[in-house]
Write a protein that binds this DNA or RNA. Structure first.
Lengths: 247, 247
DNA sequence: TCAAAAGTGTTCCAGTTACACCCATGA
DNA sequence: TCATGGGTGTAACTGGAACACTTTTGA
């Protein structure tokens, strides 16, 4: 068949009808759902019930239905498992090693998602029973190739964090600058200078003082800020739409 | 099935065996193959032979076989169609709109590839008969969603060009700095200052004078440079391996 | 009044930008 | 000798990095 196509130059895809009937490849979506609790960066996982990975944490995913787009599938899965449909979602890449799934050939399209913990916990009835937030620092083994996928997602998150203010998708509406700095330090993994950090963030001109202050802390309370939706520049406008962005 | 899984919390993937038998989703790989002829940035296309896109340029792609990894599939397709297996190849993202292919549900994993024109043309017998290099500036319509895919690939190329010296994968072994600058200007789309550009490139310390000069030009001949393989820093080492990189 | 973390400005350095003239070759 | 693009250096600017003390609260 390959030769035939090379010779005629026709679209190989035109043989699709023959092939789709007996396709042995399944397509799934797996989501790396990140959450931040002001302490650590965590990933939402469920316990794998399949040998040889039984008991290991696995990402949340499902097969793609015939009649849904990839993005729709990711959105559906997130809605089913977290109860939230207002979150940041972005495709990372696809993984397709022949032997990555013990039951057969499954190519998985992966997404990373950012969830405000406050949104998640307010939907306590919806999440999968076995789902569990695990701190990234505590993860050293996962089912399938999910550890690899998680690491790729983490790289993507680190990179995007420096490119655009997606951190707002991990924080509550009101947050302090020290909290934001801690988020950066946790995710990027290096300590930052307080004064330089504040200067930089404030110069972006996308957050404003909420007027509120921290309560019940045994030290000087921090000012609380919130995102100024109107000032989010054109280049960041995708952060206002939900749940998909482009670029 | 969804409800069942939410309640039990088991891996949805465990139902895979039931589903794979009658999967209606096919998976393809499409490659955006870029080439540069010292004038323009071009994409290798073939003419689509399928309604309603008959006659439009389409990307080079094929269905993924059951027993090959995604990267292998991309490599195989490139080898079949260009005769080259020594090129830069990187996955971009996957496209899966339900109606993106007229013959059925096809999810495509896309790659972008960089080819030295000198390598390509030295393998004249291998390429698909109808394959054709088209300048990006001349493309305003493509088959399927391939124009969209091409634009995403171009964005990726622009971004990577500023991050690491992948330009070396588009240029001949010996090249001049004005040629390199023209490549940048063509791809990024904005004119660059000659002195600053040269300073910047030379400061990377990864190219060296070859000792040769341009021939048969009606003006002062430019010095020719080549990549100093030994000095490619550790961070760029993936450019030395072929054809895949990581990061 | 003490402990703990919040908040605040200035100096220095490096990397980027802006900019104009002489040089080597073929015709 | 002319036309054409190749090749070169310096000064100004900008953004990032380094750095120490005062303030506000609860205990």
């Amino acid at each position: 068949m390959e030769e035939k196509n090379i010779i005629t130059g026709e679209n190989i895809n035109s043989h699709l009808k023959d092939i789709e009937e007996h396709s042995k490849i399944a397509v799934s979506v797996d989501c790396v759902i990140f959450g931040y609790d002001m302490e650590e960066l965590k990933v939402l996982t469920i316990s794998c019930n399949m040998d040889p990975y039984k008991g290991l944490p696995s990402l949340i995913g499902d097969l793609v239905n015939e009649y849904e787009d990839l993005d729709q599938a990711a959105k559906r899965i997130l809605k089913e498992r977290t109860g939230i449909d207002n979150l940041y979602l972005e495709q990372i890449k696809s993984f397709g090693k022949v032997d990555r799934h013990p039951l057969g050939r499954v190519i998985t399209v992966t997404y990373f998602a950012l969830v405000k913990k406050e949104d998640y916990t307010s939907n306590g009835t919806r999440p999968a029973v076995n789902s569990k937030w695990i701190a990234l620092s505590q993860i050293n083994e996962m089912a399938f190739d999910h550890l690899n996928i998680t690491n790729v997602a983490l790289d993507t998150l680190r990179k995007k964090l420096l490119e655009c203010p997606i951190w707002m998708k991990l924080l509550p509406v009101d947050f302090s600058l020290p909290e934001l700095q801690h988020l950066f330090e946790t995710i990027i993994g290096i300590p930052l200078d307080k004064r330089n950090f504040r200067k930089k963030i404030l110069s972006l001109d996308i957050i404003q003082e909420s007027g509120k202050k921290q309560k019940d802390v045994p030290h000087r309370p921090a000012n609380l800020y919130r995102v100024n939706q109107k000032k989010l520049k054109k280049e960041y406008s995708f952060l206002l739409k939900n749940p998909f962005h482009h670029g």
